[in-house]
């Protein structure tokens, strides 16, 4: 067994939160530049110019790319040979609280969905843990803005609806979302599993490098067809019309039940922020 202390996890989460807020991942930046080249609408190009200039200002001045610095979603892959000294959730939340205070990020969490009282430090995070081989811990921090999070959805389709049903559903979600999720968007699609698992697959799909094809031919075909149809909706950058509505569609699938065809859609705004690191056990 190798040991990783809670303090190391807290420090890692702190740095990832600070970095993710102001530095757009390189692949996201490149996909926005491609969108700027391909956009046919003059207003759309103007929107993309502002978005690219904003990314430069944010990185240069260590300012948040977007004032919605998000609900912090943390994906932890924990090596099976790691002994965690301390409490994982507490370590993650301590890192989040310190980062959101020190880096002047917005505190957007309310304690109960109905009482709406701000927790004051942007905690708690939403933490997903999976086990993996080895003696390290991999941490991905994904601050998720709610302009885009609010526009997702889950549907339990009938198996008979098949690929056409999945395409119709995803298109209906993006169509209804319109300008709200801050296009150009990344569309995460989770297919299969159960209701909650499809939603998790859709969220994880957003972390894939922008435009990298899916794991199997079914997913890849779906991605290609959906991207073309979504960009044909005409929503465009910021919803003011255009040909670049989505930067990419990422489909993640999983086996499912003979009676079901769960499909989940999770949308990410153009400020698709995430940062990751790996800590080796000692």
């Amino acid at each position: 067994m190798k040991t990783i202390t809670a303090k190391r996890i807290e420090d890692a989460v702190y740095q990832l939160c600070v970095d993710a807020a102001s530095v757009l991942p390189r692949d996201v930046r490149q996909s926005l530049e491609r969108a700027r080249t391909g956009e046919q609408s003059p207003i759309g190009r103007q929107m993309l110019d502002c978005i690219l200039e904003n990314a430069d200002i944010a990185a240069d001045e260590h300012q948040p790319i977007c004032q919605d610095t998000g609900l912090v979603v943390v994906f932890v892959r924990l090596g099976q040979k790691v002994f965690l000294e301390g409490n994982l959730d507490e370590a993650v939340n301590a890192g989040v609280a310190r980062a959101y205070r020190d880096a002047y990020l917005r505190k957007s969490m309310v304690a109960h969905p109905l009482n709406r009282e701000n927790t004051g430090d942007n905690t708690p995070a939403v933490v997903h843990v999976r086990l993996m081989e080895g003696s390290s811990i991999h941490i991905t921090v994904c601050p998720k803005g709610f302009g885009s999070e609010n526009m997702g959805g889950v549907a339990m389709l009938k198996p008979a609806q098949g690929q056409a049903g999945v395409i119709d559903y995803v298109l209906s979600v993006v169509d209804k979302a319109g300008a709200n999720p801050c296009p150009p968007i990344i569309v995460g699609v989770g297919l299969g599993g159960t209701m909650e698992y499809a939603a998790l697959l859709a969220k994880e799909a957003l972390l894939r490098p922008v435009g990298r094809p899916g794991a199997n031919k079914w997913d890849r075909e779906l991605e290609k067809e959906l991207l073309e149809k979504i960009n044909g909706l005409g929503i465009g950058p910021q919803g003011l019309g255009g040909t670049q509505t989505a930067l990419a569609v990422h489909v993640n699938s999983y086996p499912t039940h003979i009676a079901g065809l769960p499909v989940a859609v999770n949308l990410n705004c153009h400020a698709a922020r995430h940062a990751e690191t790996e800590l080796e056990g000692e």
Binding site: Q40, S41, I43, D168, L233, G234, G236, L240, G241, T243
Partner: peptide, 20 residues
């Protein structure tokens, strides 16, 4: 409303008459 007008100009569903 330019949210409507912009989509009319660039959305294929409006000038090709089909969808999905």
């Amino acid at each position: 409303n330019y949210y409507v007008r912009g989509r009319e100009i660039y959305g294929w569903k409006n000038h090709q008459g089909k969808r999905g």
